[in-house]
């Protein structure tokens, strides 16, 4: 361990983040398609929320840098896991303003994943789930 406390703290926090992130991805069937090194905040308006297996899907209208609207899809936990996180099919409704931290698709497609306890704001209110449970 370094003798510099600030360096020690930084190192410890980095290790902790890696430990938190890896298991969530390791249990997820499409995890290999996403870039876990690039957490990205996506902001948009909800157009649909599909409460379905194998994983719930959130669809947003987002604006690109040119101001054009594009659909962005977010893969989320399965309904069973979300139920145990205290969520329901009414978690999102069309028109909600959402800010969500996703791991973006490596392919560059407008798709990202929010598995486990990624940060979610709904109409400015923090809705980040607090219980992480294993997922398929």
């Amino acid at each position: 361990m370094s003798q510099n406390p600030r360096f020690s703290v930084l190192l410890l926090m980095m290790v902790a983040l890696i430990m938190l992130a890896v298991p969530l991805f390791a249990h997820h069937g499409t995890g290999v398609a996403y870039d876990s090194k690039k957490p990205t905040v996506v902001k948009g308006i909800v157009t649909d929320f599909a409460w379905r297996n194998p994983h719930a899907q959130l669809f947003l209208d987002v604006k690109d840098e040119s101001g054009n609207t594009q659909q962005y899809a977010v893969e989320m936990n399965s309904p069973g896991v979300m139920t145990r996180q205290g969520w329901t099919k009414r978690q999102f409704k069309a028109g909600d303003e959402v800010s969500i931290t996703v791991y973006p698709a490596k392919s560059g497609a407008p798709v990202g994943s929010c598995i486990g306890t990624c940060k979610v704001l709904i109409n400015g209110k923090d809705a980040t789930p607090t219980i992480a449970v294993e997922d398929r």
Binding site: Y34, N53, P54, Q57, E75
Partner: peptide, 16 residues
């Protein structure tokens, strides 16, 4: 039906 829907909208699209 759910798996097909998921493949079309998420799984395949995320892989390009």
């Amino acid at each position: 039906m759910d798996e097909k829907d998921f493949n079309q909208k998420i799984r395949d699209v995320s892989n390009g």
